[in-house]
């Protein structure tokens, strides 16, 4: 049994010189009518996202607006858990196009991100067609002529039927357009980042055996990064850059209201105030918005109507994930709870 075939090595052995084949007709760039209305203004986007329970601030809505209109990828940076990935999800839902997600990790390479050959299928077909090859070559005289004959057919094994599309190729070939989310790009290697450049600026990729694939419809591209490493200038230059900070108290209250609609108002105010105070502290990991939502759900489950020190102490581990952090907050528990209750009283 032969070892795994590698596309590249096969390609070099069987490479047929000739003009590159184009997989798809030339790109049409331009927004469809159905998006046009939804992207007509920043306010419209804000409202539309709110209907999907994604509360976005004005800068975020502006970013979506500009990025969709200019057809530029949007690089979203910010601390973990502020809803970067969710933003792409909401956009895909809002525009009614499929979402294609690619999670980055160290060692991610082209064959996992772009395409791979279906080696097994290639081999199987070769085996099945073995006899046919005899027929094809039967009327050939001599080695040179047989080779000539073979050359005419070798391309069939490197055609679209044998191509396994991975997220990037899928996004480019999607008929209806797509939202492409390249998640946690900072986890990938430098090489991969460089490889992305062609896609981000030209919306096309080259497959050596087949040719250049151009996007049928330009996908909306989101890249997210947690800033574990600085992205290269070349990448940044090709993207619009949005920094999503932790939300302020007002916005966070709206987010909680949208995500956990059953929560009583006073509890919501107290909870948000408490979390905002915790974020002021010097912690190993600050509680994120998603953790605030989790906490709200937990408190709702426990039938709490307002915060008190005991309830908080029991549920601290919902939004604090380090022993040291829990300990640090525990020491200021009473103070924070009192502050939160006062904040509620002010609102009432």
């Amino acid at each position: 049994m032969p070892g795994p075939l590698r596309a590249q090595s096969l390609a070099r052995l069987h490479r047929v010189p000739g003009a590159p084949v184009h997989l798809s007709p030339p790109t049409e760039i331009g927004m469809e009518a159905k998006y046009q209305e939804r992207l007509s203004s920043i306010e419209r986007i804000q409202e539309g996202f709110a209907e999907l329970n994604y509360i976005c601030s004005r800068p975020i809505a502006t970013a979506i607006y500009v990025s969709c209109h200019l057809g530029k990828p949007l690089l979203v940076e910010g601390p973990a858990g502020v809803g970067k990935t969710e933003l792409a999800n909401a956009t895909s839902e809002y525009l009614g196009v499929p979402m294609i997600r690619m999670q980055c990790y160290e060692g991610l390479d082209e064959s996992k991100a772009l395409y791979e050959w279906k080696y097994a299928k290639q081999l199987l077909y070769t085996q099945i067609l073995k006899d046919k090859i005899g027929d094809v070559l039967s009327d050939a005289h001599g080695l040179a002529e047989s080779m000539e004959q073979l050359h005419r057919f070798s391309d069939i094994f490197f055609s679209e039927q044998f191509l396994e599309p991975r997220p990037l190729l899928k996004a480019l070939t999607a008929e209806e357009g797509a939202v492409l989310l390249i998640d946690e790009i900072d986890k990938s290697d430098h090489e991969f980042e460089a490889f992305l450049l062609e896609i981000l600026s030209e919306f096309q990729i080259s497959i050596p055996e087949i040719g250049t694939v151009k996007a049928k419809k330009r996908p909306f591209v989101f890249l997210t990064s947690n800033n574990t490493r600085e992205m290269s200038d070349a990448l940044k230059r090709r993207c619009l850059h949005l920094f999503v900070p932790f939300p302020d108290a007002k916005l966070e209250q709206r987010i909680i209201k949208a995500r956990v609609p059953a929560i009583p108002d006073s509890l919501k105010v107290q909870l948000v105030d408490f979390v905002q105070q915790v974020r002021e502290m010097d912690l190993k990991k600050q509680p994120s918005v998603s953790e605030t939502i989790d906490w709200a759900r937990v408190l709702l489950l426990l039938h709490a109507t307002s915060l008190d020190a005991d309830v908080v102490r029991e549920t601290l581990n919902v939004f604090l994930k380090f022993e040291e952090d829990i300990h640090a907050v525990d020491q200021q528990l009473y103070e924070f709870t009192r502050h939160a209750q006062k904040a509620d009283a002010r609102v009432a």
């Binding site: 920043i42 004005r58 502006t62 970013a63 607006y65 949007l74 690089l75 600085e230 850059h241 949005l242």
Partner: peptide, 13 residues
């Protein structure tokens, strides 16, 4: 709005 939008294109950290 202009300020937010320009900051997307110009300021990257």
């Amino acid at each position: 709005a202009l300020k937010y939008a320009l900051s997307l294109a110009l300021a990257k950290t």
